[in-house]
Design a protein around this nucleic acid. Structure first.
Lengths: 336, 336
DNA sequence: CTGAAAGCGCTTACAG
DNA sequence: CTGAAAGCGCTTACAG
């Protein structure tokens, strides 16, 4: 029975089983062979006493916390919970705990969040914020924590990268539209200063050229990744002298805004103009018509991050940073 | 300068400042007065050596981890990330780390998740899963971890409760419709076996009676909390002999399904029939017409949970469980 | 106002 | 195959 008024420790187990704490420890860890009969006695004592190892004591001794952190720019953006769920799929069964930190400016600065996590001696950190700089990455790497990022280049040697192939995703939308018979395919982009903006317009151009279609700058409008951006963009395209028969939007929010504009003009989707988005937010399936889009494999990205981390944390991988690129999936719906 | 090849510990600081580790510790904690000049020397040494306390050593000594866990049934449901963000608003500045665990069946059983968190010696646990039983709550409370729940009764003495007032929320929707001139107000519910189902229909009846309107069972349809449920429910109401002029839905997904059904019949919203939802999911604002709904104060709930936890963890509150009820906010939009 | 020392509960080199 | 003992880096009663 458990001691009154005190946690049962490895010493209690040892006493109950008539062995040393050393042996108890080795039964638990499997780090060295233990005679079967001894092991059985120890295991019986553990069960009987309800012994549970103390993680702080273990961490102090082994100099690892077996804690992993996920830093996101905005936990409220549905992409990130999916990422977290994917990480849990892999790391939970291995006994790792995942702390999620939202570095939402201006409430919490990324500097402070990173410092906090390093102070807490996280074994691994997955950095999702797009505004993270090499300063942050360097600080993490120097602290000894393993680093995984969602964008950037592997050349700095600071850690592994996992990402999805946005350009290929947009290109697959273009192919889908071409197959459906559309030829005058327009593109409404968000900010081109952002990485997604650059990658997605590149995908649009790639898709066109693969389909043998010419790039026509009159069919391209650059704005913001918002509903307003989509409305403005669609109106500009409809007023222009090169009228599109399909509009590819750089994200779903832009597509919602474009849908507003088309509806106001009395145009039918996809009858008069086809429309596509990117991201597959929840609303994409709920709109009428439902929106053709590309599903970002957030959960899969999370799983990959976790596997790369585990390689380094548990399996002793210590090679050069790896760059994992995951495919995106086209989700055809009513709007195209 | 930091020792080569080793973490700088409290002993290094003590040596550099020419004091004992006891004094260094007290400078850090403020647990006993230290002469100003001594403190200054210690602080200088800390800064110079870049000393950072080791949380495992501290936890081992003080028998607390300063870790808090949030357990959710599905991190992918947008309510829960908001909850997590609210908790962070309060707990991050206090130095607490928040681990998020998704007890999504059948992948991870709640039993296993709870056990895992207790093994990790969490100081506090916020339990959101609706399928948590008193067995789980009892195990948590007995382990010494502080428990906060999002539903249930405070009478079991197992921990604090934070919730929003769903019944009042639905009642406020009914009032809103009555003010707008609607009188034949129908209700489409989800499963009445679920707590939200029970609370929301209660709110509907409350709203009616407060407005002096009679309850008419022909205006009520019970189904599931899904888009399909809404479609089926709306069709049944439209076929019935008591034709409504407004439909209150027990959640936004039901409202989306009802919108499908109305649209198919060629009915205009809100011209022919007004429509409202509950939850304020992202899609509610993106639909056309945008959906009048009730915003669940998820972030505020998270903040309240964190404050109650902090009361018990840091401020020594040890009184009886508290029951915090937060108001919901009506979001009037185009559909009503 | 300050310090010497015990001890939190583990893991692991060292020894047999 | 097993054990005695050191030590991870802190905090805090005890003493002065």
């Amino acid at each position: 029975m458990p001691k009154v008024g005190g946690r049962v420790g490895i010493g209690d187990v040892a006493a109950a089983a008539g062995v040393s704490t050393t042996t108890v420890s080795h039964v638990l860890s499997g780090n060295r062979p233990v005679r079967a009969s001894t092991r059985a006695q120890v295991e019986a004592a553990i069960r009987q006493l309800g012994y549970r190892p103390d993680p702080s004591a273990r961490s102090l001794r082994i100099q690892r916390t077996e804690n992993v952190a996920l830093v996101v720019p905005d936990i409220t953006n549905p992409f990130f919970p999916q990422l977290a769920a994917g990480m849990q799929d892999i790391l939970h069964p291995e006994g790792y705990l995942i702390s999620v930190s939202d570095a939402a400016l201006p409430v919490r600065s990324l500097d402070a969040v990173v410092q906090h996590l390093l102070d807490r001696r996280m074994d691994g950190i997955v950095m999702a914020p797009h505004f993270a700089t090499s300063v942050h990455h360097t600080r993490i790497a120097e602290s000894g924590a393993k680093l995984i990022r969602l964008s950037g280049s592997v050349d700095d040697g600071l850690g592994d990268i996992v990402r999805s192939d946005d350009a290929a995703g947009v290109a697959s939308v273009v192919h889908h539209l071409v197959e459906r018979g559309y030829r005058r395919i327009a593109f409404i982009n968000g900010e081109e200063t952002a990485e997604p903006g650059r990658l997605r317009i590149a995908g649009y151009r790639l898709g066109l050229s693969e389909a043998g279609l010419a790039y026509d700058s009159r069919l391209v409008h650059t704005g913001t990744f918002t509903r307003d951006g989509g409305m403005t963009g669609a109106e500009a395209l409809l007023r222009g002298d090169a009228r599109p028969d399909a509009i590819v939007c750089a994200n779903d929010l832009i597509a919602v805004g474009a849908m507003d504009a088309l509806r106001r003009r009395g145009l039918s989707i996809p009858g008069d103009i086809a429309l596509t988005g990117y991201d597959d937010i929840e609303a994409a399936a709920l709109l009428s018509p439902s929106l053709t889009t590309v599903h970002n494999p957030a959960r899969e990205i999370g799983r990959s991050c976790a596997r790369l981390l585990l390689d380094r944390l548990a399996d002793g991988y210590d090679g050069p940073p790896r760059d994992v690129v995951l495919p995106n999936r086209l989700i055809p719906r009513e709007s195209s």
